[in-house]
């Protein structure tokens, strides 16, 4: 018996995977910005004395848990919308996935244990907080590197993935520093500005290397970038990225020389480095998204090959359409409740 698919069904078969790819990308982007800053704070945490470290950790304390939920959503959407891809990607990245999870476990519980455990164990949990944050960040970058190349094996891929791991660490440190610029005052804020300058240079340098290596490593991406008229469409991305990097660098230099009025440091304007960095993340994300489309496993599986059944996707889409605006709404509310400069956290 032949079943004739109606045009609407064909329409949804074409579009639902794209919608889900978009939702997954959005979750991943929100995750990288939000957990990026709190992982960055974790990596920076050993560089300061105890009081400042407590304040840095207090600045992310009410948020880290909700931030990590975006990772669960991104992986969850991969799982539900593209089940075959989920198995293929996570199976190939078994070891770095395990390393990332152990890192996230260590840093997540350290928030609690360092405060609630005895004083004499605090150094141990601070170390767990730092090393867990670094481990999670490096593994995420490493996985991203392998993913860009389409999950190959060999030394060249290892070197490329390691480069991306370093690049992502710099980027997380950058956005973590920018978060701290907005959330801290006086001495710590000045320190954060200096960290941001160094992290920006590191991020920019690794981004240049990665951008140069990517089209050389992947023939498909080379074609996607350097054919006409794609080149024209894409050109705003690198130019905007260079302009924003330049602007951020100037801004940070100026603020570190204290040439700005005192007002800058405690008004909403001290959020501008964070905003610029987040925009840089968006640009990098758009570049990546363009390079991958329509693959969900680069070079082997497109979103249409890997998609779950239409009915299942539709039922999740309804749920997502209703809940996502609410989630974004109460997340903003939570950020507002803990707005302003960070203060020590209390339960009472």
């Amino acid at each position: 018996m032949i079943e004739w698919a109606s045009t609407t069904e064909l329409f949804w078969d074409d579009w639902l995977p794209i919608v889900f790819l978009g939702l997954m990308g959005l979750s991943a982007l929100i995750y990288v910005v939000l957990d990026g800053f709190d992982l960055g704070i974790g990596i920076l945490s050993p560089l300061v004395a105890k009081e400042d470290r407590d304040l840095m950790i207090a600045s992310i304390g009410p948020f880290w848990d909700a931030n990590e939920t975006w990772l669960v959503l991104a992986v969850g959407l991969l799982l539900v919308a593209f089940p075959t891809a989920h198995g293929a990607v996570l199976g190939a990245l078994y070891l770095p996935t395990t390393a990332m999870l152990v890192g996230l476990i260590l840093r997540g519980v350290a928030f609690e244990f360092r405060i609630k455990g005895p004083m004499k164990h605090r150094r141990l949990w601070d170390t767990a907080f730092f090393s867990g944050s670094l481990m999670a960040t490096l593994s995420q970058g490493y996985m991203l590197g392998y993913y860009i190349l389409g999950l190959p094996t060999g030394w060249a891929a290892f070197a490329f993935a390691s480069l991306v791991a370093v690049g992502l660490s710099c980027a997380y440190v950058l956005i973590g520093s920018c978060w701290l610029i907005a959330k801290s005052e006086h001495q710590l804020q000045q320190t954060a500005i200096r960290w941001a300058i160094r992290a920006l240079i590191g991020t920019a340098a690794t981004m240049v290397l990665i951008s140069a290596a990517t089209p050389l490593a992947s023939e498909r991406i080379f074609k996607a970038w350097f054919s006409f008229p794609n080149l024209l469409w894409l050109s705003p991305i690198p130019f905007l990225a260079i302009a924003l990097t330049w602007r951020l660098h100037t801004l940070l230099k100026d603020t570190s020389n204290e040439t700005h009025t005192a007002h800058w440091y405690d008004s909403g304007r001290c959020w501008s480095p964070f905003a610029i960095t987040a925009s840089l993340f968006v640009l990098a994300f758009l570049g990546l998204a363009y390079s991958f489309f329509p693959y969900v496993v680069p070079e082997s599986l497109t979103i249409w090959d890997a998609a779950a059944s239409r009915d299942s996707l539709a039922i999740i889409l309804v749920g997502t359409a209703i809940t996502l605006p609410m989630i974004i709404g109460y997340s903003i509310f939570a950020y507002k409740v803990f707005g302003g400069k960070a203060t020590p956290l209390t339960y009472s």
Binding site: F63, I316, I327
Partner: peptide, 30 residues
Amino acid sequence: GNIAGPLLGYEVLTAFFLEAGFLGIMLFGA
């Protein structure tokens, strides 16, 4: 996956975000 996926998806969307989103206020927001 066509059955487990939506169930896990609804768990994350309706429950996981809700508890994580309000936990900060519950713990430190008094």
